[in-house]
């Protein structure tokens, strides 16, 4: 079991850049580590170095828990390190117009909440987060998030909702089907799977 999370509440940081790729989130040179932690210090390092005013360099956003981002966030490589790095910065949720597929899968498996919202809403939230301290409260059970003025519904994957709000571990769920999976593999051998030399070629 994982820790059940039903609500996330925190300060928002605006990063309205489209197509933030995983090389930007965590450059490949830092991927030789074999642990799941230690990546936060390198997260977004290229943007941090290039621009002193970059959102994550600003003191006021150091405690932010929710990132407001641009379209196609997390495109590029499959590195889960990108999710680990973002979580280590203290972020628990990202609101953006869209996310890349592998990044979404990786986020889900680590309990990082991704919320799709139309571009206009993301821009509105980002502007608000830039002007004042924007606090958002995300209700995962009812799939809505609130600012102090407005409530926004969002679409949540029902399985992810179940896992995060109940503390269900995905791997435990998958393993509950292990005997069915094993039988399925067995039946496929020689029928649809033809790996003759499996295990011998090196």
């Amino acid at each position: 079991m994982n820790t059940a999370i039903k609500q996330i509440k925190g300060l928002c940081a605006p990063m309205m850049i489209d197509d933030i790729d995983t090389d930007i989130i965590i450059p490949a040179q830092y991927l030789t580590q074999t642990s799941k932690d230690g990546y936060g210090q390198y997260a977004f390092s290229r943007l941090k170095q290039a621009d002193a005013d970059f959102v994550l360099n600003q003191q006021k956003y150091q405690t932010a828990k929710i990132l407001i981002a641009g379209d196609n966030f997390g495109c590029g490589s499959s590195r889960e390190h990108a999710v680990w790095a973002i979580q280590e910065l203290g972020f628990q949720a990202i609101i953006a117009p869209s996310f890349a597929d592998i990044f979404s899968n990786n986020a889900r498996k680590n309990g990082l909440v991704l919320i799709d919202q139309p571009l206009e809403i993301c821009e509105l939230l980002a502007a608000a987060a830039q002007q004042n301290d924007l606090i958002i409260s995300i209700d995962l059970v009812n799939a809505v998030f609130k600012t102090d003025q407005q409530t926004f519904p969002f679409v949540i994957n029902p399985f992810f909702q179940h896992c995060i709000t109940e503390g269900q571990d995905e791997l435990d769920y998958l393993c509950s089907h292990l005997s069915e999976i094993k039988a399925h593999h067995q039946n496929a051998k020689g029928q649809t799977i033809f790996l003759a030399g499996a295990g011998v070629a090196q």
């Binding site: 889960e80 999710v83 899968n105 990786n106 498996k109 791997l171 998958l174 393993c175 999976i181 593999h185």
Partner: peptide, 18 residues
């Protein structure tokens, strides 16, 4: 298709993914 590290753990342990 490409998968993340957690999903690879699923393949290790179950020979399947979600």
């Amino acid at each position: 298709f490409g998968i993340g590290t957690s999903t690879l753990a699923h393949v290790f342990a179950a020979g399947a993914i979600l």
